[in-house]
Amino acid sequence: MNVLNEMELSFESRSSNEGFARSSVAAFIAQLDPTIGELNDIRTAVSEAVTNCIVHAYRDTIGKIIVNVKITADNTVIIKVRDKGCGIEDIHKAMEPLFTTAPSEERAGLGFAVMQSFTDSLNVHSRVGKGTTVTLKKNLSRRFGNG
């Protein structure tokens, strides 16, 4: 994996940072000249991953969320969203569409389903009490021979 460029954000798990996170990732990706659709897919997936950290990982507390983005030579964007929150007990259950542990927050239970559908690959690594890392990969089309 030949990494051409990389950036990392660290911010507090406040819901007011959801827009900041997805817009910052989109701004970094802009150098690849993505299509509007690709950019929208990435913004949506990042928004879901970051919201999960805020609503679930750090429920009722404030912790740090780290978003790392790499751009590789084959025009792939690799996004890691990491927290040191509560972790996920049963990842398979958590990834089931419509399953949610936060109905009072009016969560639809679609976070992982959206991440899966809007990217090319989704990987979730979690340890209870230690935290969760979500890795999203998206291959971008080469429009003008960039990269």
Binding site: R43, T44, S47, E48, T51, E105, E106, R107, V114
Partner: peptide
């Protein structure tokens, strides 16, 4: 822009 929060809404 809308993520799954819009679905919940």
């Amino acid at each position: 822009f809308m993520d799954s929060s819009g679905i919940g809404l």
